[in-house]
């Protein structure tokens, strides 16, 4: 019974945080709400006896993937002056919502951990069984997942490489930056010509590599 109440609280927090995340206009604020939503789902996992899945949800989803989002958003550095935004981030109205939702989850977690006997462990699937199943019948799926991750690595490297080379150009030639920002109004044409220039520049070393 108690477990059900805790489940309802956690799922209400997750749903509220998800709705808030989808309706924010600032990407970072949405990201904070999204992390709270993932934490709520992790509490649900814990309550239904999938403790290992809960740990993975926090470590990989709320940790690694969200950090990737933060990196990219910070790297894009959208509009506005940096210091002004920093000041804006410290306003309570921005972090209060996620903090309240996260503290509800935290109190719930403390309660569950202090009342270990009787709740949350009735039909828990042991991690050992998960591991045996993963590397037993599902070993082919592990191989496929590894190939998928490799493809993701190669793909993201290929997509991000040109961006990184471009920022190198920016740092090396300050004149090019000014020219670039002036032309940014008709962005399609400018982007296309820059693209051609870039590909022309790049053909030489690529041919050299092939030899």
């Amino acid at each position: 019974m108690l477990e059900i109440v805790l489940f309802y609280i956690a799922s209400a927090v997750a749903l509220a945080a998800t709705i808030m995340a989808m309706t924010r206009t600032n990407a970072i604020h949405a990201l904070i709400y999204l992390i709270v939503s993932l934490l709520g789902v992790a509490v649900i996992f814990y309550l239904i006896g999938a403790a290992f899945a809960a740990a993975l949800e926090i470590v990989i989803y709320a940790g690694a993937i969200m950090v990737l989002f933060v990196f990219v958003i910070m790297m894009l550095n959208l509009g506005e002056a940096g210091s002004q935004r920093e000041q804006q981030w410290l306003k309570p109205s921005i972090w209060l919502g996620p903090a309240i939702l996260a503290s509800i989850l935290f109190v719930e977690l403390l309660y569950v951990l202090s009342a270990v006997e009787g709740t949350a462990s009735v039909g828990a699937i042991p991690v050992k069984e998960v591991g045996l199943t993963l590397f037993g019948p599902y070993v082919l799926a592990v191989e496929i997942a590894s190939m998928l991750l490799l493809a993701g690595l190669v793909g993201s490297f290929h997509l991000g490489r040109r961006y990184l080379e471009r920022s190198d150009e920016f740092f090396n030639q300050p004149n090019a930056v000014i020219k670039e920002t002036n032309e940014s109004n008709d962005s399609n044409e400018a982007a296309k010509t820059n693209e051609q220039n870039l590909s022309n520049q790049k053909t030489a070393p690529e041919v050299a590599w092939k030899d």
Binding site: Y61, F69, V72, M75, L76, G152, F157, L159, G160, Y163
Partner: peptide, 15 residues
């Protein structure tokens, strides 16, 4: 793992 691969490629596309 699908989500991790998808987000890596997707964020490359964002750039």
């Amino acid at each position: 793992s699908v989500a991790a691969a998808e987000v890596a490629v997707g964020l490359g596309l964002v750039l």
